[in-house]
Design a protein around this nucleic acid. Structure first.
Lengths: 222, 222
DNA sequence: CTTTTATTCAATAAATTTATTGAACGTTAC
DNA sequence: GTAACGTTCAATAAATTTATTGAATAAAAG
């Protein structure tokens, strides 16, 4: 093998990792796995695809070394291989958000339609939590809240929001958060709360980012 | 458009960026553009592909927002869009090197075959340069040396090395560097120097990394 | 104005990636 | 043991990506 062939093989190997990142479904899966480890079934349901399809995508991610599996009883849990994968995913997402104008337009359109543009930064939330100025709700599915959540947050899955609106305070600012900047559960929740006359805002990023920023969380370790 | 469609569009848009990163040729181009801006012809030659093919790949990179173009006379120069692209590329490359065992095996095989396994870290080189303990040579093509190089480095393109061996000192350690950890020019140079009885070592990373680490360089600004 | 040179475009065939389907596998619960 | 359940496999058709070829543009040089 001459030098040129060596070089081609190197980039070909490297592309195995980037190819694994090149599919929208797999990106959505990674974004979900940033929250914790989940079964194939859960992933399929939450990233909106068939179980067989999710399984195939997960195997691509596994072969590329981005995720790993742990068997627990009859379930197989997939998780990010390590913190470096999470960091790279966050950098890529950030790059995408900064370089693809259409993403921002999509997000703005969505929020404008729901009449809520303003987002709260992590810094601001951190301060307001310290001064006990806000009521914080985690609107992700309960399973994810149980794996770990922002300290002082209560669980109120967005699917149950309508029936449990009366639990929310009417005299305080409510902050809702979900998985991350691309997750729309908190946007939907805020829209609904505002329609009910509540003072609600969404956190700009989500749980995985709060964790990566090393801010206070409550984690269930297994 | 309902929430699910919105979400799919978001990840689809994001995948436009990652798809641009999913091809080995385009990775090799990015790695080259980490050194500076170059014409299509130069890129085609140095990344070993036809001009038409390089042009097509470059357009994919441009549409995804990763690179930009500047026209100068009859040449069109391609360059990384900004520092964030460089940082993301470095993170991805690092992730690849850490997660793909075959890359490391390829590199080790290559170096073993050439009987030189030991690499010098940036830290060590920095110290040795300060104490004037090493003779530093940049073995990249002269064009790239002229765009910018490590301070105190002399230019000795690996293609001219054979004829200019007598310029090298026989009584000092020689350090050779090139574009980065995936670039093999410095490995070839070190192998040749050792065969001639010189005391030579390669820098682990390359110019773009030295620059990103904010170590002393000489840059030609235009 | 014509020629030269650098780059891009358009068309095509080959290769790769993808979603879907239904069967197969392996573990748990009974 | 057998049934139920979660996951993977294998086969296939549709969609996308890729390299190659030769023609088309656009700027510079003569």
């Amino acid at each position: 093998m001459d030098t040129r062939e060596f070089k081609s093989s190197l980039y070909k190997q490297l592309a195995k990792v980037t190819k694994a990142l090149s599919n929208p479904h797999r990106l959505e899966i990674l974004d979900l796995l940033a929250q914790g480890s989940f079964s194939v079934e859960y992933i399929a349901e939450n990233a909106n695809m068939s179980v067989a399809n999710a399984s195939q995508h997960l195997q691509v991610l596994k072969k590329s070394g981005l995720v790993d599996t742990v068997r627990d009883g009859k379930y197989i849990f997939y998780e990010l291989y390590d913190g470096r994968v999470l960091e790279t995913w966050r950098a890529l997402r950030q790059l995408g958000l900064s370089r693809n104008q259409e993403i921002n337009e999509l997000l703005e359109d969505y929020r404008q339609r729901k009449d809520q543009m303003n987002l709260m930064s992590s810094d601001e939330l951190f301060q307001k939590l310290k001064n006990n100025e806000v009521y914080l709700v985690d609107v992700r599915p309960e399973e994810e809240y149980n794996l770990g959540h922002i300290k002082q947050a209560g669980s109120l899955p967005h699917k149950q929001l309508k029936e449990r609106l009366q639990e929310l305070p009417t005299d305080r600012e409510i902050v809702a958060y979900c998985r991350g900047p691309l997750c729309l559960m908190a946007d939907e929740a805020v829209a609904l709360m505002r329609k009910e006359g509540l003072h609600a805002t969404r956190l700009e990023n989500g749980f995985a980012d709060w964790l990566a920023e090393e801010r206070p969380v409550e984690i269930t370790d297994k």
